[in-house]
Design a protein around this nucleic acid. Structure first.
Lengths: 356, 356
DNA sequence: CGTTAGCACTCGACAGTGATGAGTGCTAAC
DNA sequence: GTTAGCACTCATCACTGTCGAGTGCTAACG
């Protein structure tokens, strides 16, 4: 699609103005507000052409014009200038990096918060979906005579821990002491470190049982919990932040519409459905209105990017009305991706594939 | 305040009906809906008396009557029958107990979720505020040559872990191996287990430095992170759930009102201000409208209870419009408190003080 | 031939109007 | 003491006319 310079500028004015004000915009307003050096009548003629091309529309005869989905698409593809982060945004992200040089899990939550705070749009961030989590390290820690603590480190440096309550029928033999536990930890690490849960064969279990000796009764509860933890780890979590921000948009003023969005963003299943769209896409992707496969989002736009850590890929996204500030949202999202890259590198994981 | 039987029943009818419908209720409706055996005219006379007593009011002449704050207070204090949990509610809680026999941290989050799901009101639950967290156990776990994992168990069985990145200038000496770390863990436990962060004196640090020997460079980073973790632990967290439910209430239909509530419930500071009201109160407490010290909540009611674990006390609360279903809310809250008690007992902590 | 001014037309927003109905308070009768 | 009846109040709703923003069309202008 080709537009002459004047049409280009008029469309740009309509889109940016509508993104800002959420009000249909008329020819006279454009003539006054944007000094294009032509009269409102001329603008009317051009607008009529733009309407024929399907780039703008009107809600009823004699209302101002509003960008159509095609118009937004044209704007995103051809008009949007990439914007540098503002000083405040850059500083905010910088501080976040410092706070996050800790653990991958927190980084993901914090990323969601930062995204929504910087953009005023609700943010969704999913943990990387890992095909096969493997055990990196196991440590048993004594608590008291009837329970002990199991700490599990996985190959992505996620750390999990859970209390193991020893079955009451074997409680008479009691929990092993500190020294015994370090020995048992060593046995566990020797046999199952580097393995995924499926790799633990009957054979390996038998060997470990023998080496556990008098503490054999501890092994099965421990293995059971390890299996649960790995399974929970394979269950990807999704974090959202700033959902309340949608109340600020007039397009969700109707309570039923706001409720629908709230519902979708608090429900795990629908969150996955939202993020699962076009999973293979590289770089930042903008999905406008009906381009969404979900009916619920046909009135919304979604800006999303996939990121990769080690052997898994996760997703990071912003949701807003179709009239969302694509320029800002894309630049912030891109900044955040670079941020994640730095944190991940600091954690010694493989870098995020970020393409802008 | 004393009411004769007829006035009592009429007030009860007005409160329960208004809680259900959110519409002012007139004399004729009461006469039809509740078979009190008297005509609407008589009811009108009685209502006039109730209005003089300040228990009900009307929005304008010739609107139906609405309970006043004093009316709600009278209802809660004198009319509310405690209700047994329904089968569904009881089952739901039972399942929750089973899922929660893990760790105190998750229990608190899950409690918030359960509360809001069962009542349809937003729920707030705070972690117990602990005066002085003490270290119960420390374990250092090897990760790779430049980092190790620190696991910390506190006296309330909260488990925290964080990766310790060794300073680069000492990286040449490398991270200690598995065996060395178990020895270092033992040193740490010998000296600071059972202590709070303030109890770690310069003297103790010097002793540990000596015992660490060639790995002395590891000690300070580790202690620094322990201090941070304990500090973070002393920072009580607050969880909310089901905030979106307020959209369902007509009293928050105005966007500005809903936004105010959302804002208050997403902001840590205001959450604490909400929960801090009448901290010393025992058992379940109902705070109605202007009884709230916060201006923001003057139009809301708050149902809250404090719970105690070991040396700390936390808070659990429901927020709703003044017209909230006190009967249901109180019974569910009381059920949840008993639930927490069971989980806490299973964890070996001291029981919740639940008084209903 | 592109641009512009002028004009008729459309339609949403808003304020004013009257009818309707739910509800009250008062009074008189039971 | 209780009830029926009646006048009165007030929110709600549908309807109406006015106003203004905006469009499309046409004719005139450079």
């Amino acid at each position: 699609m080709f537009l002459n310079d004047r049409k280009f500028k008029i469309l740009q004015a309509i889109v940016t103005d509508y993104i800002e004000t959420a009000e249909p915009i008329g020819s006279r307003t454009i003539a006054k507000k944007y000094s294009l050096g032509i009269s409102s009548a001329t603008i009317r003629n051009e607008m009529s052409d733009l309407e024929d091309m399907g780039l703008i529309g009107q809600l009823h005869t004699s209302s101002g014009r509003v960008p159509s989905e095609k118009g937004y698409r044209f704007f995103v593809d051809s008009m949007m200038k990439s914007r540098a982060l503002s000083v405040e945004e850059a500083l905010f992200l910088q501080r976040m990096i410092i706070d996050n040089i800790g653990q991958a899990e927190y980084m993901i939550q914090e990323t969601a918060k930062a995204l929504s705070r910087l953009t005023k749009y609700p943010a969704i961030v999913s943990e990387p979906f890992l095909k096969k989590t493997t055990i990196k390290h196991i440590q048993l820690v004594p608590l008291d005579e009837k329970s002990l603590l199991l700490v599990l480190v996985t190959d992505t440096k996620t750390v999990k821990n859970q209390i193991v309550n020893l079955p009451s029928d074997t409680r008479s033999s009691g929990a092993p002491g500190y020294k015994a536990l370090t020995k048992l930890s060593a046995v566990l690490n020797n046999h199952i470190s580097g393995k995924s849960i499926r790799d633990i064969s009957r054979d390996i279990i038998d060997k470990m049982l023998a080496e556990f000796g008098e503490n054999a009764h501890v092994l099965m509860p421990v293995l059971g919990i390890i299996a649960d933890m790995i399974k929970a780890e394979d269950d990807v979590r999704v974090y959202t932040s700033g959902i309340k921000n949608i109340l600020a948009f007039p397009e969700f003023a109707e309570k039923s519409k706001a409720e629908a969005i709230f519902h979708a963003l608090e429900d795990r299943e629908s969150l996955f459905a939202i993020l699962d769209q076009s999973k293979a896409h590289e770089g930042i992707q903008v999905i406008i209105g009906a381009e969404n496969t979900l009916d619920l989002l046909k009135a919304c736009s979604l800006i999303k990017a996939n990121y990769t850590i080690d052997n898994g890929t996760g997703c990071i996204a912003l949701i807003g009305p179709m009239r969302m500030d694509y320029t800002q949202a894309v630049s912030v999202l891109s900044g955040i991706l670079q941020n994640m890259q730095q944190v991940i590198e600091a954690l010694g994981l493989q870098a995020v594939k970020a393409t802008t």
